[in-house]
Nucleic acid binder design. Sequence first.
DNA 1: CGGTTTCATGTAACCGGTTACAGATAAATC
DNA 2: GATTTATCTGTAACCGGTTACATGAAACCG
Lengths: 339, 339
Amino acid sequence: MATIRDLARRCGVSVATVSRVFNNPDAVTRETREAVLRAAALLGYTPSAPARTLATKRSRMVGLAWDTGHRGPGWRHPFLQELLVGLKTALSERGYHLLMLATGEDADGHLRAVRRHSLDGVVFIDDGTADPALTRLAESGVPCVSLDRPVTGRRATYVTSDNAGGAGAAVRHLYERGRRRIATIAGPGRTHPGAERLAGYRAALAALGLPLRDEYVVEGDFYLGGGHAAMRRLLALDECPDAVFAAGDEMAVGAVRAALEAGLDVPGDVAVAGFDDIEPASLVRPALTTVAQDRAGFGAAVAAALISMIDDPDAAAPPPTVLPVRLVVRETSGPPRAG
Amino acid sequence: MATIRDLARRCGVSVATVSRVFNNPDAVTRETREAVLRAAALLGYTPSAPARTLATKRSRMVGLAWDTGHRGPGWRHPFLQELLVGLKTALSERGYHLLMLATGEDADGHLRAVRRHSLDGVVFIDDGTADPALTRLAESGVPCVSLDRPVTGRRATYVTSDNAGGAGAAVRHLYERGRRRIATIAGPGRTHPGAERLAGYRAALAALGLPLRDEYVVEGDFYLGGGHAAMRRLLALDECPDAVFAAGDEMAVGAVRAALEAGLDVPGDVAVAGFDDIEPASLVRPALTTVAQDRAGFGAAVAAALISMIDDPDAAAPPPTVLPVRLVVRETSGPPRAG
DNA sequence: CGGTTTCATGTAACCGGTTACAGATAAATC
DNA sequence: GATTTATCTGTAACCGGTTACATGAAACCG
């Protein structure tokens, strides 16, 4: 491995000059710069990241605090892969890398990892449940961006979808398809998307002049079984809904299944709309009407927020990013049974 | 941030002693060690990773070369999330971290990243298509472990599932359910799982004494549309199969759909089995019989292979790990229509 | 033309660890 | 008690960069 001194000697310049070629090219004569770059290419020289980090205290790495386990190890992000691709791509365009932080250790493991590696920032992905350790990290001054979860901290912000707007769009869509008794299977209230989607549902009903019935709001757990159980409760009501907005696709699939099992037709007797546009949504029959999030946009937005804070060490955190969503109409929200 | 010298001064010992406390505790008196550890806890001291890397040339980080894009950006790993969790967990237990490598740059970007960050090893995740840059990396001497893709290189090995065995199990299962005209929708032959699953299908037919008919082997692309199209071709045959083993679940779902569209009953007229046990497999109706892989085991196996190579710098690569698979019987392989 | 600026470059300290080697002390051996 | 050996600790060089400051040359100026 060639070092900066090898390169300097070979070019007959000082190490400072070589360093400048890579960090502040304009401070060096064009000829010198080109000679150094040529020699670098020849020797296969690449500046050592740890050495640079040691000297500058900036690692050009951001940590990924990806915790599963609050809601059980079974928790899965609906589109982790696209998220990571987007994040990785956007970060790498700016010269940053993603370091996956280990879960476990003690509660402050992440904070220690940040100091250990001189991380420039941290991204949280979790199930939206507040974790005191993450909160402390966000308040420690390290630039932090979380997904779908409000955070406090001078240099902490978050990225989320327009959950309320998407829920509203789904409800309006059901209304336009002639439904008037629109229920919801909500997500857990302690999660941000769960709470926001419920708020959006309520707001939309109010805007449409529909009554808000308590019995039409059932809380689920974002999982298939929860959606199934919730739907059974809704179907047992005296005045059973003719449409259901489920705050998550898995719950929506469970709801459809419960309706079919009860001998109802979907969408004939009851229409269903979900949220997230998970892969199975288009694979099940009837295919699920749902609200799709801007998957690629998430990663890019996280990277943008993070880098803006990193670049300006004493700027306050940018306001939360709210990404637009898009209603995807499929089969479960078809027209009601004639008559 | 407390440094090793702060700690040394505070404890009245030398930096060497402090260093030893963390790296070679037995070389230090118990009293001294405990005093240092106490002080470390008090000051919140954590050894700096970059400084350590600089001095030792070992970063305790492994790169994740996760390339999408060969088979198009749409390529998705069937269980990336479990894979990453397993990998991250297994690595962190041994004190290693995962650094996500950026795609793009020029072809040798990964190799440069390895040198830049003094990475101790690299994990490949891709769609199984050979990429010359990765091959070069594997042959460069860096410990490499790839997923579902044979690699050459003195310190390179791979982890895969028992693809042939799983395919055989699926075929035998269909046979036991009374099927005799068993076709397959294969994956692309250039991918390792595609080739292996086809081999397993062939071996099983031979072992069961069933004839091997060329027209019963149709190559798909692992996607829904490919499975659908392949099934249509199979159904158009003079003697149409009564069972289909699809080498991937998405193709299996497409095949089921094509059969249903043709007015056939699944499994009454034609049984279907898939491979991978993707999430939708249990969500579609009829639910898909498939071969499940050891999702958690993958990450652990990769970490084990990698660390064994890292720990012993001049050992050859361990042999490939082949993880057992498990047949998951659901509805699409039910009994044939009576009569 | 002397004095001031500007610009490109070099020198050397520093970032925070590890570790070879030497030195000191205590234990073991004869 | 002297000598050897084992055990613990310290000194200082080194890993490969960055950067404050100094230096010297060229450009500019009245």
